[in-house]
Simulated scan of single mutants.
Amino acid sequence: MNNVIERLIAAHRTLNREIRSELSRRVPDRFRLSQLKKERLAIKDRLFRHLPDAAEMRRIARGAIARARHA
């Protein structure tokens, strides 16, 4: 798989974790959430430029996640 795609998927996963973490706080920082979500969307847009077929992107993302868990 393309190294760029793997890095984008990893960055997207990291942002998802940060968003969940921020949402779990007693008083989430709405500005930080907004910034994180904008970054996540920008990464998703870049992924779709490399993989315009959503089903293919999901298949590759699942493979990258599985490899990361076994590493």
Rank of each mutant, 00 (worst) to 15 (best):
S24M: 07
L15T: 05
R26F: 10
E18N: 05
N2L: 14
A10Y: 05
L8S: 00
N2W: 13
S24T: 04
N3T: 08
A10C: 08
R26A: 15
S21I: 02
L8H: 06
N2R: 14
F31D: 09
E22F: 01
E22P: 01
N3Y: 14
A10D: 06
E18I: 00
V4H: 10
I9K: 01
A10F: 12
R17S: 08
L15W: 08
E18W: 08
L33W: 09
H12F: 13
V4Q: 15
A10K: 14
S21T: 01
M1A: 15
R25Y: 05
V27N: 10
I9A: 05
H12Y: 15
R7K: 15
R13Y: 15
R7F: 10
A10Q: 09
R17E: 11
N3S: 13
S24N: 03
R13C: 15
A10N: 12
E18D: 12
L23S: 05
N2M: 14
R17T: 09
Q35A: 13
D29P: 06
R13W: 15
S34H: 12
R26C: 07
S34D: 12
A10L: 10
L8I: 11
E6T: 13
R30G: 13
E18G: 04
R17W: 03
I19W: 01
P28E: 03
E18Q: 11
V27F: 12
R20C: 14
Q35M: 06
I9N: 00
A11K: 11
I19A: 02
F31M: 04
I9Q: 03
Q35S: 10
P28N: 01
R20Q: 08
I19V: 04
S21Q: 04
A11V: 10
N16I: 08
S21N: 07
A11I: 09
R32G: 02
I19N: 00
D29Y: 02
R25P: 06
R13H: 11
N2I: 07
R30E: 07
I19T: 03
S24I: 04
R13E: 11
